[in-house]
């Protein structure tokens, strides 16, 4: 059994093919996840639509207002982009820490987001940076905040007639610190047991002016830790306050047992690694 492979050269052509083949079509960019699911026999589409030849979906551009990453930009292109490094070094480090260089050379950011595996690295960091995705359909374009993109394991709020075309990351307010930490008890290229992304900005008086925290591998989707954020907003982030805020992550996550840790262990580790991430931002502001 095989499928027909299509390589449209424009988004309009891709949308056309999707309309023609409906549920029998599957989109791929780098095709890493697809190849695995196909080999496992979990996907049997009649038509596969490859997006990699669509020129407008690639590349990375930066303006004063935002960083725009094309959906078919590979993890490695993003890791090596000077624009990304200028925008946010923690974003560069996040991409550099994904799996191995082989995977980063093939897997794309658009594919990563559309695949919606809750243990992936870029989603929590992009959530903490307030990113949004652009989705195109025959009806036009719309943007979806990353906070609203992930619905369930492997499930996004993208409609079946939409193509994810780009990821937009707004410019960070001056003085914003960012970090991405992941707990890897087994190997460096593994998926994390838990991962934590955080951004923080301080007032001149040393209070928290702005904070965003997001976690991966702690439930069916990557998730914002709003209880942690609320506990820190306006506070002087001393060690006790951070420990208290980090403990509140329990209310924001819904982990389930997987091969990288039981739900209970993930809850413990989410608290520990949230505290570490927040402390590193406070200690790093000097």
């Amino acid at each position: 059994m095989t499928y027909d492979y299509h390589e449209p050269e424009t988004v309009a052509e891709a949308l056309d093919l999707m309309a023609r083949h409906g549920e029998d079509a599957h989109l791929v960019a780098g095709a890493t996840a697809f190849t695995l699911l196909w080999r496992q026999g979990l996907l049997r589409p009649g038509h596969v639509i490859g997006l990699r030849r669509i020129v407008g979906l690639g590349g990375i551009t930066a303006t004063d207002k935002e960083l725009v990453i094309g959906a078919t930009a590979t993890h490695r292109e993003i890791e090596r982009s000077a624009d990304v490094a200028r925008h946010c070094p923690a974003l560069t480090r996040t991409f550099a820490s994904v799996a191995t260089v082989r995977i980063r050379n093939q897997a794309t950011l658009g594919g990563n987001l559309a695949h919606a595996d809750p243990a992936q690295d870029p989603p929590p960091m992009l959530m903490a940076l307030g990113a949004e995705v652009v989705a195109a359909s025959a009806a036009g374009e719309r943007t979806i905040a990353l906070d609203d993109l992930f619905v369930d394991v492997f499930t996004t709020s993208l409609r079946s007639d939409e193509v994810l075309t780009a990821i937009r990351v707004p410019a960070l307010a001056p003085g914003t610190h960012a970090t991405y930490l992941k707990f890897l008890p087994q190997t460096a290229d593994d998926y994390a047991t838990v991962s934590v992304a955080a951004t923080m900005r301080f007032t001149d008086d040393g209070e928290v002016a702005d904070v965003r925290v997001a976690l991966g591998a702690c439930g069916p989707t990557p998730v914002r830790a709003r209880s942690v954020e609320d506990a820190l907003a306006g506070a002087v982030p001393d060690a006790a306050r951070i420990a208290d805020a980090a403990a509140r992550v329990d209310a924001d996550i819904a982990p389930f047992d997987d091969v990288r840790g039981s739900a209970g262990y993930k809850r413990d580790m989410a608290r520990v690694w949230t505290e570490r991430a927040l402390l590193s931002l406070v200690e790093g502001r000097a």
Binding site: V28, A31, T35, L36, V101, R102, I103, N105, Q106
Partner: peptide, 9 residues
């Protein structure tokens, strides 16, 4: 570019 031939169509 370094790639895994088992993942590449």
């Amino acid at each position: 570019k370094l790639l895994s031939a088992c993942l590449m169509p």
